[in-house]
Amino acid sequence: MGDTGTPVLLTSAQRTGTAVLLAEAAERRGMDVRVLTGPHTLDGLDERTVHWYGGPFTARRITDRTGLALLEPPDDWLARLPEEFTGRRIEASTLSKAWELRRPAFVKPPGDKSFPAAVYADGTRLPRTGKRVGPDTPVLISEVVTFAVEYRLFLLDRRIAAGSRYAVHGRLDVAPLHRDRYERHVRRFVRRLLETTGDLLPSAVTVDIGLVRDPESGRGRWAVVEANMPWFSHCYAAPPDAVLDVVLRAAGPRERVLPSDRRFLRPAAHSPLRAPRAP
């Protein structure tokens, strides 16, 4: 795919608030914004520079036709972190192993949304059938902790490009990171995290962190909540223009992928979205 023509931001048909904000930011830059409503939307994009914001399942089906390269954190990244950064025990496993749980645990698919991420009373409460789940579905099994406050951070080249608070005591409570009461603590924790483990993440990524309160002492410690793909993350109160910088790096032309990012590429699906054949 070449670089001729105006760059394109392609978004899914699900018009979330973030998709609208990023589309507006892209238009301010002179980009061509298109909503993927079917195979015909991809017509004429063969020689265009295409970027993506939307879900992973659709994204995987359009990579061949658009030349997209999608960066994502490794499924086991959170489980590989030292406990000083997680504040809890985390295991990378499979859904079949999670079915055997006989205790409460927080269980989630590491990258996609194949089933709800939640605290499950035991393994019997987890899904066993479905279009996108099966015994070998990767999961993260985490010790249950309570976050007093949580932040979403869009990272680019090992620095915070944009950030937002998104929850307080588990409830949606959105505010900009800039001038937040914990901004200095957030930046200091993320700096230490990236200095220690930054090479385990792609150059453009979303990381959520939070403050865990000890119920007995009342003391708090900062911990990583999870890492995600910027091209499938809500921006909350983060500045859309800065978020767009991260999205464009994380989901763009294959030939522009940095050598250090190639190991973080999401594999393409075997069933690409194709244009219908003429009768």
Rank of each mutant, 00 (worst) to 15 (best):
P7I: 02
T11I: 13
S12E: 11
A19C: 05
L21C: 04
E27A: 11
G30P: 00
M31P: 06
T37E: 15
H40D: 03
G55H: 14
P56Q: 04
D64L: 11
A69C: 03
A69H: 09
L70Q: 07
E72L: 06
E83N: 03
F85Y: 09
T86N: 08
R88C: 10
R88Q: 03
K97S: 15
K97A: 15
R102L: 02
R102I: 10
R103Q: 14
G111R: 15
G111M: 14
F115M: 09
A118F: 03
A118N: 10
Y120K: 09
D122T: 05
P127V: 13
P127E: 08
R128F: 01
T129N: 02
L140C: 12
L140W: 10
S142C: 06
V144N: 13
T146K: 13
L156T: 09
A162N: 07
A162L: 07
A167K: 03
V168L: 09
D180E: 03
R188Q: 12
R191L: 00
T197S: 05
L211E: 04
D214H: 09
S217A: 14
S217F: 07
N228P: 10
W231G: 08
F232W: 12
C235I: 10
A237G: 03
A237C: 08
A242N: 00
L244V: 09
L244Q: 07
L244K: 00
D245W: 11
R249L: 08
R254Y: 12
V257D: 12
P259F: 02
S260K: 07
R262H: 03
